[in-house]
Computed example of a mutant assay.
Amino acid sequence: MQLSLFKIIPEHTTPGEIYTFNLNTPNPKQAAKLQELATSMQQSIDNKLNPAINKQRATKRRKTIAQSIIAEGVELQTIQSWLLAIAQMWFVGNTPEVLRGISQKSQAEALYKISQTARTLEEVEEILSNEYYQDRIKSLKRASICTAGEIMSAIAEIQKVVKPDEVDTTQQELNRLELKIIGMKSGDFFPSPPFVCDRLIQLAEINENSRILEPSAGSGCIAESILKKYPQANLEVVEINPTLRSILELKGFNLVGRDFLGYTAENSYSHIIMNPPFSQLIEHIYHAWKLIHSGGILIAIVPESVFFNKKYKDFKEWLENWNLYDESLPKDAFLQSNNPTNVATRIIKIYKP
């Protein structure tokens, strides 16, 4: 009698009992193949999660396009995580039978796409007869996943291992919030363009001992420029707007306060670098001055009107008491902002004795 490889009757089997031989042993070769497929996706994922269009001045159209590209990146990231999960199953030796035929990215992608559309057996059966899905269905058949039940089983086995919250959706959420703030007029929100941020940092005289604060940090333009040039900088930020605070948190900044005018610190700062709300310009700069220790530097963007409008007479005199340095920014400087304005501006720099 010829015995099946899958049904072997050992000596201890009782009458009527069928013993199933388990071929589900570790397979490092198959694991490595799936890991290689997953790794090959990384460059495309990185490009989509950080689309080039995001580096251009933000408009709603550009941000909408970026949001769509980032969503594609998150989807690829999930498919990659599914391939890695199956690879790990092969490495350990606990691959469910329904997943053993998967050897291509297209098969993991087909399962993921179906999982996003169908939740019940009936819905998967409808997909099997839908012309739009036939290429994916053929791909799954090559993996011996043919029926609606097998498709649901395969998806369920992967989802036992890969939880939705394990996929990083930070960039997708960040882009959604940044789309929300384009055109926001409340709170004097006019983000500093990159070249303005760079000039602020050039003037700042930051060193390894600097303790830096950015009040009213907005969406983090100045803070990002600081950390780009000084990655280890001891930087803290304050922001009152809830949406902008969420953006700063997603970007990983150290938020230490909400309303800057009510903010106090146990230790003073060596540097405060700021683009304050012009509607409360004087109050913000005076308060910043209180938070800087002797020998510290305050750098701020101010409207050009500080230097000729009579309402700023006392404030201008106060600035000049501290050996003020100032330089005019190009007239169209903030037309390049993500929230543009044609207000003429200057950078001021003062040392605290």
Rank of each mutant, 00 (worst) to 15 (best):
N267P: 09
I45H: 13
F278C: 09
A233G: 02
G296M: 04
G73T: 03
L255Q: 00
L255S: 01
M184H: 11
S305E: 14
T25W: 12
Q280D: 09
T170G: 00
F253H: 04
Q134N: 00
L174I: 02
R245I: 06
E249T: 13
I127F: 01
N323D: 08
P303S: 11
E17P: 07
I158D: 02
W322N: 14
G187I: 03
Q116M: 04
S186K: 14
R346F: 03
M274R: 13
R100G: 07
K229R: 14
G252D: 02
E236G: 07
N234V: 08
E173C: 01
N209H: 14
L83N: 10
A223N: 04
D165I: 05
D326P: 03
R199T: 08
Q42S: 13
P193M: 11
N275V: 01
I65W: 11
G73V: 01
H293K: 11
F21D: 03
K311E: 14
L203G: 06
L235F: 15
L49C: 09
F315T: 05
S294G: 05
A300W: 12
H287A: 06
I272R: 00
A71P: 04
N54Y: 08
S115Q: 12
A333L: 10
K311L: 02
Q159M: 08
T117W: 12
L23N: 12
W90C: 06
A233S: 05
S68I: 12
I151Y: 11
F91I: 08
V343R: 00
S81E: 06
M184F: 06
K313S: 05
I45R: 10
W90T: 01
G295P: 02
A58S: 05
Q56K: 07
A52D: 14
G218C: 04
Y312H: 09
W318K: 00
K313R: 14
F307C: 06
I127K: 00
D46K: 10
P51S: 08
S225H: 11
I145M: 03
R176V: 00
E304F: 15
E157C: 12
F334D: 04
Y230H: 06
I65A: 15
A265R: 14
V167L: 01
Y133A: 09
I65G: 10
L121E: 11
K311F: 00
S270I: 09
A118P: 01
Q280S: 12
I70D: 05
S210T: 03
R57V: 14
P164W: 01
S129T: 14
Y312C: 00
D165M: 09
Q171Y: 10
V167C: 01
K228Y: 12
P330S: 06
D326N: 14
Q42D: 13
A71W: 05
L319K: 06
N207A: 05
T39G: 07
K349E: 01
L319P: 15
G101R: 08
S268M: 15
I272S: 12
Q171D: 10
N50Q: 15
K48E: 04
A344T: 08
Y230G: 04
M184I: 08
P330M: 06
F308N: 13
T147N: 04
Q30M: 08
H293I: 10
L174V: 05
